[in-house]
Amino acid sequence: MKLEYADVQQTSPKQTASRSKQKWNGFYRKLKRNKIALVGGAIVLFYLLVAMLAPVLAPFDPLEIHLEKKLVPPSAEHWMGTDDKGRDILSRLMYGTQLSLAVGFVSVLIGMVFGIVLGVVAGYYGKWIDTVIMRVIDVLLAFPGILLALAIISALGPSLMNVMVAVGIFSIPTFARIVRGSTLAVKKLEYVDAVRALGASDFIIIAKHILPNIMSPIIVQATLRVATAILTAAGLSFLGLGAQPPTPEWGAMLSNGRDFLFSAPHIALFPGIAISTLVLGFNLFGDGLRDALDPRMKK
């Protein structure tokens, strides 16, 4: 009897499910043992909850101006004080969590989608396609730090939306390189030859057999990249090129706090602590995920 790719597919869903369950159980056990990763995960979860519950938790309206209460230092009424327009900093930070997380996730999603497509195509097809794509990636990596994002913002104009696009493009090379490397390693394995021999199309091989097997480094990288994206976006807003006033974005709040650094340092203090702890959370969690998902990458 001639065995077709589709037949093989139909025979093994149960086995595949149980194998994947085992794999996830192992991963979960490893992650649970890693205390540092748990701390990171807890920090991220905390901020996710704050972002979701901001309308309920925030004691004041983040945009409401109370000039009679401007520059109030931290007190029982305003735990983190007020800014130069009398707005409650704690409430603004809570709403700002939504923006920071959104910028982090959306920009990483943009970078990840394009990076995966470019990396997998380069790695899978090889030859001139690989050369062309990787030279493009080399060029994008030749822009130091946030400079590429800055150049894109300069063309598109300052706004939070454009920051997401710019930071997303800035993340593409990192994902493309990792995905290409992993694809190269996986496509040489026997099972890929086997499904190809059974007549599976390139698309099926990539989507069903290569991508699921290279997800670990992608997930690790995505987690760590969210941290970088949040930092970069906050930096761009700090320079006045991202969120515009009165948006309660952390970088923009910090920039505002700079003008009152001597008279009311609390305005700059709290947004900085918020950015640092959230970024720390993603870094810790990303490191832990790396150890649990991909021990070879352990530093």
Binding site: G235, R258, L261, I275, S276, N283
Partner: peptide, 22 residues
Amino acid sequence: ALLGVSLPNFWLGLMLILYFSV
């Protein structure tokens, strides 16, 4: 070191100014 990677450098700069300069 982990904190160092996570601090936004523009904020660190402001805090250094606040403490060491002001």
